[in-house]
Amino acid sequence: MRNLGALERAVMDVLWARSTPATVREVVTDLADRNLAYTTVMTVLDRLARKDFVRRERAEDGRTWRYVAAASRESFVAELMLQVLDLAGDRDAALVHFARSVPVTEADVLRDALTGHGRPDPSGRR
């Protein structure tokens, strides 16, 4: 199961919150309350790139990297939900239990998505 550690999750939260790719220095600045070393954040971003959670591109100066989340937070969470569902002995029972445990408003969102009346999927898939 592809999972994120606590520090990886904090870094991903920074990237998901940004509208543009970020350098290591920008991520360090956004995580200032954690008092992390530059090299620690650089290592985490490199690990996330190897795991395909982030993409990196050269910055305009040609020396530094800029990092961006490879997928949206929603896509990541949906993937986690599917992976957890794979752990169920009885997928149908797990789905029924899940559907019955969510609030009515969220059940309505699920119903609309299943019938094609919900919001369009931002990834472009149906």
Rank of each mutant, 00 (worst) to 15 (best):
M1W: 13
M1K: 10
M1R: 13
R2W: 01
N3F: 11
N3G: 05
N3T: 15
L4E: 09
G5H: 14
L7T: 11
L7K: 11
L7S: 14
E8Y: 14
E8C: 10
A10L: 02
M12T: 13
M12P: 05
M12I: 04
V14D: 09
L15D: 08
L15P: 00
L15C: 03
W16I: 06
W16H: 15
A17W: 11
R18K: 05
R18T: 05
S19K: 13
P21W: 04
P21C: 03
P21Q: 03
T23G: 14
V24L: 03
E26K: 07
T29E: 09
D30M: 07
L31S: 07
R34M: 13
L36D: 15
L36Y: 14
Y38I: 03
Y38N: 09
Y38K: 08
Y38W: 15
Y38H: 13
T39I: 04
T40P: 06
V41L: 12
V41M: 09
V41D: 10
M42H: 15
T43N: 15
V44Q: 11
V44T: 14
L45A: 06
L45G: 10
L45W: 01
R47A: 05
L48G: 10
L48D: 10
L48M: 05
A49E: 06
A49P: 01
R50S: 15
D52F: 12
D52C: 03
D52W: 10
F53G: 11
V54E: 12
V54S: 07
V54C: 15
R55V: 11
R56S: 09
E57I: 03
E57M: 04
A59H: 13
E60Y: 10
E60P: 12
D61A: 06
G62Q: 05
G62T: 04
G62Y: 12
R63V: 08
R63E: 06
W65R: 15
W65G: 05
W65H: 05
R66E: 02
Y67P: 06
V68P: 03
A69C: 04
S72M: 00
S72R: 12
E74L: 09
F76H: 13
V77K: 09
A78P: 03
A78E: 01
A78N: 10
A78Y: 13
A78G: 08
E79A: 15
L80H: 06
M81Q: 15
L82T: 09
L82A: 14
L85M: 07
L85E: 05
D86H: 12
D86N: 13
L87R: 15
D90Q: 15
R91I: 00
R91M: 01
R91C: 04
R91A: 04
A93S: 08
A94N: 08
L95A: 02
H97C: 02
H97M: 04
F98K: 01
A99K: 12
A99F: 06
S101L: 02
V102A: 00
P103L: 02
T105P: 03
E106Q: 13
A107E: 01
D108A: 08
V109I: 05
R111I: 00
R111L: 04
R111V: 00
D112Q: 15
D112E: 08
A113D: 02
T115N: 00
G116A: 02
H117P: 01
G118V: 01
G118H: 10
R119A: 08
P120S: 02
P120M: 08
D121E: 06
P122S: 07
P122E: 03
G124K: 02
G124P: 12
G124M: 05
R125D: 02
R125G: 02
R126L: 10
R126E: 03
